[in-house]
Design a protein around this nucleic acid. Sequence first.
DNA 1: AACACGACCTGGTAGC
DNA 2: TGCTACCAGGTCGTGT
Length: 263
Amino acid sequence: MPELPEVEAVCRKLRRTAQGGVIASGHIVRKRITAPQAPEEVEAQAAGRRIERVERRGKNIFLHLAGGLAMHVHPRMTGNLEVIQDARFRPHSTSAWFEFEDGRALLFADSRGLGTLRLTGELPEFGIEPLSRGFTHAAFARLAGESSAPVKLFLMDQSKIAGIGNIYAAEALWRAGVSPFRPADRLSAARLLTLRNELAAVLREGVKSAVAAYAKPGGFNEAEPFQLLVYDREGEPCFRCGAKIRRVAQGGRSTYYCGRCQR
DNA sequence: AACACGACCTGGTAGC
DNA sequence: TGCTACCAGGTCGTGT
């Protein structure tokens, strides 16, 4: 489920709740989430370690543990990390949990169970962070110029830009008035600048909205990311020109767009 | 190299 | 009400 803004909100909350916690014991419920690592190995290696720092890279969460090891969590579609007061009350969707010495627990809840959790000594390479200072017009234009893929697929390629998923790609393209099918390397400099700015803006708004939503108990399952202007609006009128929003499959995913004002 | 597609899972819901 | 079919904020491996 989560894209960059939701993962960022989770990380900010974990810094207030999980950071500083000392893991007493680990419990991997869904055994395959640690593959190719053995679940027992992850449980044993995590035990006794303090959570020193929480870091986000794209949609990935890294909990840096004492001793130079990091817990790498990818929520995929429905995963969520949060600290609960009592591990006995963990939900049915629990993929894993880590009990702290003080009785609280770090919970990895994931209704679909596609999320992953591994221990790593070294962080892998990711694409550029779209909310970082390095995400300049020049950097964006250079990356786009190297890709002949449809611009929506380009935006979602995690090795190029990290953290953009199906919703935010659609929203940014709609706001910029850019067709999701246009090859990335055939956009003018002016349109790339607009797209870069809309991308950054929609992600910032998403973070703000997600942070507010996560402040409430319950987490993100009940929270709309924010006002969606095109995603999931098939058949409804475009807010800009009134034409019907369309949905087509692109790269195996649904792409929502306005065929009239996205060019 | 650049696609499309199925697999991995569970749950919600639209439609009959 | 109950059943079915389809859909889902992601990624990876395989095949064309």
